[in-house]
Nucleic acid binder design. Sequence first.
DNA 1: TTTAAAATTGTTATAATATAACACCATGTA
DNA 2: TACATGGTGTTATATTATAACAATTTTAAA
Lengths: 130, 130
Amino acid sequence: MHKEHPLTKNQQIIFDLIDKSPEPMKAYSILFSVQKKGIKAPLQVYRALDKLVEIGKIHKIESRNAFIACHNSSCQVSKATAFSICEICEKITEISSASLSKYLANFKDKDGMKYSKYNLEFFGLCKKCR
Amino acid sequence: MHKEHPLTKNQQIIFDLIDKSPEPMKAYSILFSVQKKGIKAPLQVYRALDKLVEIGKIHKIESRNAFIACHNSSCQVSKATAFSICEICEKITEISSASLSKYLANFKDKDGMKYSKYNLEFFGLCKKCR
DNA sequence: TTTAAAATTGTTATAATATAACACCATGTA
DNA sequence: TACATGGTGTTATATTATAACAATTTTAAA
Ligand SMILES: [Zn+2]
Ligand SMILES: [Zn+2]
Ligand SMILES: [Zn+2]
Ligand SMILES: [Zn+2]
């Protein structure tokens, strides 16, 4: 299980913002949104983001440089992430599939090597955009 | 099968450089290396990179903002990429596993949606670093 | 309780990554 | 020809992310 990490003030402000957002947020858009709350510099945002990613409360969508709150309840999710990304409307959803995560967690490459962590990004068209 | 794309001068210069590199290269490191050949501006590099990615000659490692030449002979690879990344020495290898690509190409999410494209990045420790 | 380590914060400056906008040129083809 | 398409060269700028340093708060030993 996750150890509980009580969030600090900046972390809480930024997590709440991302958590409420219907879509992934980018760092400088976060910065803009929290300036009224006293967070004025990029580093304050990036530090909170780093920590939130580390403890698995949010994930980074690498191909979009954007951050999304994790809504999976299971642990380990910060080490095993999968997303679907619509190439038209940019709708992004975290995929939680037991069979997928089982398959990837057990995947061995040619050298028999297993991996502790992965990030998978699927691209296609969402329901609306098809 | 791929349609053959004869590379333009800039594309060829940049592809050759990446292809020879033992490790993925970043855009500005590419820029530095090709300045003696007359490529002087970031845009010239990014334009060539975009095209090379599009036609599948190279791939972008999203979590590293770096580019690697594709050594898979099969087609479709630019739409279905998987890499292993060592978190210590940053050694990066393209994974070519028929079973993995088959599994992912056929993966359907909860809504029964299939995806035209994916990128998977595994993280762990390479042989040397274990 | 004291005290030292660890984590968090605030701040300025700067690095690294990527694109906008515009003019020009080459090549294919109607 | 004349037009479309794609590539090039160039300057400027936007976007994303980190370095460096000082101060403060939290944590957990001693
Ligand atoms: Zn998650
Ligand atoms: Zn869509
Ligand atoms: Zn490849
Ligand atoms: Zn290694």
